[in-house]
């Protein structure tokens, strides 16, 4: 079998997001910020979000260090939730977590995830699921704990 199976994980769109990550910068005027670590591998994500007065994500950016999967997942996540309201973004994070754990969702939910839906392929690589979910956990935490201090947390 060899590396041909890798094609299902490292799809073109995933590699493209990893090589050319979208929104990879820290926001200067963020309303919500969080740093999450994956202690098993040392991956780090700093996520900053600017919510507008209608509780919509006006801007979002990330920085940090990680593997192809975690970087590309963060890029796809920021693409997907840009402009969404808090409730929708949280629902999308839930859909993503469910999807990578193999829970079925209506096609409409998956469509909402945009490129990120392609990471359902991570299911066949259980050791890498955390790499894909790190960015979405950070989103959830940042949105739910807007008053929380922005110190380091471990995912």
């Amino acid at each position: 079998m060899g590396l041909s199976k890798l094609n299902s994980l490292y799809r073109e769109v995933i590699l493209d997001h990893a090589d050319h990550p979208r929104h990879k910068h820290d926001l200067e005027n963020s309303t919500n910020m969080i740093t999450l670590k994956n202690p098993t591998c040392g991956d780090v994500i700093n996520l900053s979000i600017a919510m507008d007065d209608q509780d919509k994500i006006a801007d979002i950016g990330f920085s940090g260090d990680g593997c192809t999967i975690s970087q590309s997942s963060a890029s796809m996540m920021t693409d997907a939730v840009m402009g969404k309201d808090k409730e929708t973004a949280l629902r999308m994070a839930k859909t993503f977590s469910d999807m990578v754990m193999g829970t079925e969702h209506p096609q409409a939910d998956l469509d909402e995830l945009g490129d990120a839906a392609i990471l359902s392929s991570i299911m066949s690589f259980p050791a890498r699921i955390k790499c894909a979910t790190l960015a979405w956990w950070a989103l959830q935490r940042a949105l739910l704990e807007e008053d929380a201090p922005t110190d380091e947390e471990e995912a």
């Binding site: 079998m1 060899g2 590396l3 890798l6 990680g66 593997c67 192809t68 790499c131």
Partner: peptide
Amino acid sequence: HPHDIATALDME
């Protein structure tokens, strides 16, 4: 990234 290396080597 070393994680990507380890996954690829595991496929081999």
